[in-house]
Structure formats: C-alpha cells, structure tokens
C-alpha cells in the first residue's frame, strides 16, 4: 500500500502543477490580447463613433481596467459567476459573456463541446483499432503482399490532407449515395437519445480524421512490433514453449504498444481542443469552428480566451493521465 500512497501523492502534486500552469496560461492569453493592435471597443462602435461611445463600450466590455484586473475578474467569475452592466448574469462557472452573441460563454461551450468530443472520441476509437490492427498485420507479414498493401494505405493516409479527403468523402460518398441529407449535415443528435442520427452525423467526419491518424499509427505499430519481435525476451518466450499467438498477444504487443499510449493520449487531447478543418467541412459547430469564428469574424475575446484555455487544459490533463497510465503499464516507471 506504500506504492499506492506514493502514487496518490504524485497525482496530487501533478494536479497542483497543472493548476499553476493553467493560471499562467490564462494570464498569458490576457496579455497577448492586450498587446494586439485591435480594439474591441472600437469594433463594437457604429458609424457615428465618438470617443464617448468608445469609452462607454470599453466600460461595457470590461476593458477599462488593467489587464491583471480583467484577468482577476475572469478567475472570480469561474467560481462565483458574474453580473454584467447590461443586466446579463452568468452563474458559476462563468467563462465570461459574449457581447456578440448575447450569451454566457459557458452555455456556448456546453453546446459546442459534445460535438467536438463526439468527433474526437469516434475518430480516436476508429484510428486506434484500424491503425493497430493494420500495423500488426503488416508486421506479421513483413515483406509480403499484406505488408505492401498496408504501406500503400500509410502513404495515402499520411499524404492526403483532411481538407481534401474530407471534401472527397462529402462529395463522393455522403452526397452521391444520399446517405445524409445535405441540409442535415452537421446536425447534432444526442447519441443516447438518437444513436442512428448521431452516427449519420459523425461517422464520416470521424472517418476523415481517423484516416489521417490511422496511417501514422499503422506505421508506428508495424515498426514497433517488428522491433520488439527481435528482442531477447521474445526469444525467451519462444524458448519457454509458448505458442506464437500468446507470444504476440501477451509479450510482443505489451511492449510494442506501450509507447503508443503516449502519442495517442496527446493526439486525442489535441483533437479535444477542436478539429478546425474537419468541423468546417462537415458543418459541425464544435470548439474548432467556434474559435475560428471568434478569431476571424467577431473578435470575441471571452470565447477565444475560453477555447484556448480549454484546449490547453485538455493537453495538460491528458499528459497527466498518460503519465499515470504509463506507471501502470511499465513497472520501471512506477519505481521512480
């Protein structure tokens, strides 16, 4: 139980680091926006713009105080909620108020996140199962037809960008065979209430993303399995009299797939921040599209801030999860 204690201590220490890191990231974002030569108060001003109106806007948007004060209000809002001058009120946890959409950011995020999560999770499951199985098959048939076929797949998958494969899939599969009504492309269906509708919306975007990732994972799995197969401990397993099936499943894959946990965790975390291109092609209103719109069209600081913070939080937290998972996988890590 001493090991368990140590693990808990390790996790809580890492959580503390994570918190500090998030605070620093959020401050940095505030300063970056302060430095940018764009003034949201002026953008929100009509043709008859007077300094008075700009000043009033600045007060309304909460930009008339110092950067640190703005940041502090944001942090307070996370825990206590916030009330705005126009009478808008966002309960805790408040990520701010979008004056563009006249909505609390928390609500906007809560709408976009399930879409991004569906996309990321679906793609993740698809590319892991496809990539790992193809990689194992290629490694076991090294130099033969199946290996060469899989290397063609790898080449296509890695060299075809999602904005091409996605458009091709929309044009030649979804629309041609009338699988999804173009007007319903990207509609959100709750998977627990309408699984078929959810699948219709998400199968193809997930497949588009998975295609690109699966290729990388196929190559990675193949080379790792081949490398591990020549390890001494695999020869030992054979010398014990184990069958090839058991050797592959228990001995080779355990060692060959351990490093995949790391990259899979980080790739997944990256997608949770939003898959901008894929969301755009399939008309999904996830976090990716939300951020792009906020940056390029509406210059909506609270939204940009929140999506950036979320994206970095996913990466940091996933790093923590990967490290903990690794301690369970590799006893050598557990010791140190």
């Amino acid at each position: 139980m001493k090991g368990c204690d140590r693990l808990l201590k390790y996790i809580s220490r890492r959580l503390l680091y994570t918190l500090v890191l998030m605070l620093i990231v959020s401050i940095a974002i505030y300063f970056i926006f302060d430095w940018l030569p764009i003034d949201p108060a002026r953008l929100n001003c009509t043709k008859q713009c007077t300094p008075d109106i700009i000043e009033a806007n600045r007060h309304r948007l909460g930009l008339d105080v110092s950067v640190m004060e703005q940041w502090w209000r944001f942090i307070q809002g996370l825990f206590h909620g916030r009330v705005y001058t126009q009478g808008a009120e966002c309960p805790a946890p408040s990520f701010g108020y979008s004056f563009n959409r006249h909505e609390c950011v928390t609500g906007i995020l809560a709408e976009a996140f399930p879409i991004t999560l569906s996309l990321a999770l679906g793609a993740f499951i698809m590319w892991l199962s496809l990539g790992i199985s193809l990689g194992v098959i290629a490694a076991k048939n090294k130099g033969k037809f199946l290996d060469k076929a899989s290397s063609v797949f790898v080449l296509v998958g890695t060299s075809l960008p999602t904005f091409i494969s996605g458009i091709l899939i929309v044009l030649f599969v979804v629309l041609k065979f009338n699988i999804v009504n173009p007007l319903e492309l990207g509609d959100w269906h709750n998977p627990f209430i309408d699984p078929v509708g959810w699948l219709k919306t998400f199968f193809f975007p997930c497949a588009t993303l998975a295609l690109a990732y699966a290729a990388t994972y196929t190559r990675f799995t193949r080379s790792n399995v081949i490398e591990t197969s020549s390890e001494d401990f695999i020869r030992t397993a054979r010398a014990k009299g184990l069958s090839e099936k058991v050797i592959l499943r228990k001995h080779t894959l355990r060692a060959a797939l351990a490093p995949i946990v790391t990259i899979a965790g980080l790739d997944f975390a990256g997608l949770l921040g939003g898959a901008i291109i894929t969301e755009g092609i399939f008309g999904l209103s996830g976090l990716g599209r939300l951020s792009v719109k906020a940056v390029t069209e509406t210059y909506d600081l609270p939204i940009i801030l929140s999506t950036t913070l979320l994206a970095s939080a996913f990466v940091v937290v996933m790093n923590l999860i990967v490290d903990i998972a690794y301690a369970f996988i590799d006893p050598r890590v557990r010791q140190s």
């Binding site: 001494d232 401990f233 020869r235 030992t236 010398a239 014990k240 009299g241 351990a258 590799d330």
Partner: peptide, 24 residues
Amino acid sequence: RRMRGKTMSMIFQDPMSALHPYYS
C-alpha cells in the same frame, strides 16, 4: 514447441534483456 520448456530448456547470455521488463 511442446518439447521446449518441458524436455529441453535454454538460458541466455544477457539475463536483463532476456526477461520481459513488464512482467514480474
């Protein structure tokens, strides 16, 4: 295969790399 480990066994030069690092 069914004779390996039962009728005949083998030990190797480098006992570090010959044992699986992930199993007790």
